[in-house]
Simulated scan of single mutants.
Amino acid sequence: MPEQLAPYSVVITTFDKRFEPFLVPLLAQIKEQRPHIEVIVVINGPARGVFDEAYRANILSYLARFPKVFPTMFPSFQSLAKLWNRGALTASHDHALILNDDLELKSENGTCFFDHLEAAMATHPGTFKINGSFSHFTLDKRELIEVGFFDERLLGLGEEDGDFYWRFYKKFKKEIASVDMGLIDNVQSDLADDGYTKGIRTASKFNREFIQNEKYKTTLIGGYRGMFDKKVNQALEDEKQYPYELFYLENKNKL
């Protein structure tokens, strides 16, 4: 890691169906490339039924093989917004690389994905997408606090990235940057929990309807499109989530 680069954590969100085919190889790749990096694994529970005890035992056993890997586990299904928020809150550092679990991180000719990432972070110190996607992005925790955490009223999966993108622009009058880099492959698996109603692919019908019918309204005057289909204005205001996190960041060294 370049000396001038601030330390950062890795946050991975995952669930039972993606353990063997995706999480197992992804974590091995991360720890091969950066053995001592802090990794927060946020493990979602099922939307229907009970948490699989065999999966619980297997994932905890697997994570324990590696140093500095810390699980956060939910017994029942939680929103992706909550998983991202809790991952960022749990991370020890002010910057985090947020990853879906269906990714492959590669190495070739003596260079690995993290070499590319850290070069990008040295010139883009704030939040940015990788290759235009929120399947993999870096998050500046202080920017997250200023914009407002990912909206946990989005109870399923989907739209949390577009909502944050819209609010980021509203706050800073600029779009979240995107940095192109190689040695990362997004599989975009359609493996999903069976217990919630789907809209587009794995995204929740609930989330899309909440965004389109309640939180935002299309407009012909002003507004901003961002990642949405049309220009919109915000109709439903945000509650302040995790209001004491900034106090914690600014005072934790006084303990």
Rank of each mutant, 00 (worst) to 15 (best):
R167I: 06
R167N: 12
F168S: 04
F168Y: 15
F168C: 01
F168M: 08
Y169D: 10
Y169N: 14
K170W: 03
F172G: 03
F172K: 06
F172S: 03
K173L: 10
K173G: 07
K173P: 09
K173I: 05
K173H: 14
K174W: 09
K174T: 07
K174E: 14
K174D: 07
E175A: 06
E175N: 06
I176E: 12
I176P: 09
A177I: 02
A177E: 10
A177R: 07
A177H: 05
A177S: 06
A177W: 05
A177Y: 03
S178C: 06
V179G: 02
V179H: 02
V179Y: 07
V179R: 07
D180A: 06
D180T: 03
D180V: 01
M181T: 15
M181Y: 14
M181P: 13
G182W: 01
G182R: 15
G182T: 15
L183V: 05
L183S: 12
L183I: 11
L183W: 01
I184G: 02
I184L: 03
I184D: 01
I184H: 03
I184P: 01
I184K: 02
I184A: 04
D185I: 15
D185Q: 13
D185C: 11
N186S: 07
N186A: 06
N186F: 10
N186Q: 11
N186M: 08
V187R: 05
V187S: 03
V187P: 01
V187K: 08
Q188C: 12
Q188V: 13
Q188S: 13
S189D: 14
S189F: 09
S189M: 10
D190P: 03
D190C: 02
D190W: 06
L191S: 05
L191I: 09
L191E: 09
L191P: 05
L191Y: 05
A192Y: 08
A192T: 13
A192W: 07
A192L: 09
D193H: 02
D193F: 00
D193N: 00
D193A: 00
D194K: 00
D194W: 00
D194S: 01
D194N: 01
D194A: 02
G195P: 05
G195Y: 00
G195K: 01
G195C: 02
G195A: 02
Y196F: 14
Y196Q: 05
Y196T: 04
K198W: 12
K198C: 05
K198I: 03
G199W: 10
G199P: 03
G199N: 09
G199L: 10
I200K: 14
I200E: 11
I200Y: 11
I200H: 11
I200M: 08
I200F: 11
R201H: 14
R201G: 12
T202L: 13
T202Y: 13
A203W: 15
A203E: 14
A203D: 13
A203G: 08
A203F: 15
A203V: 12
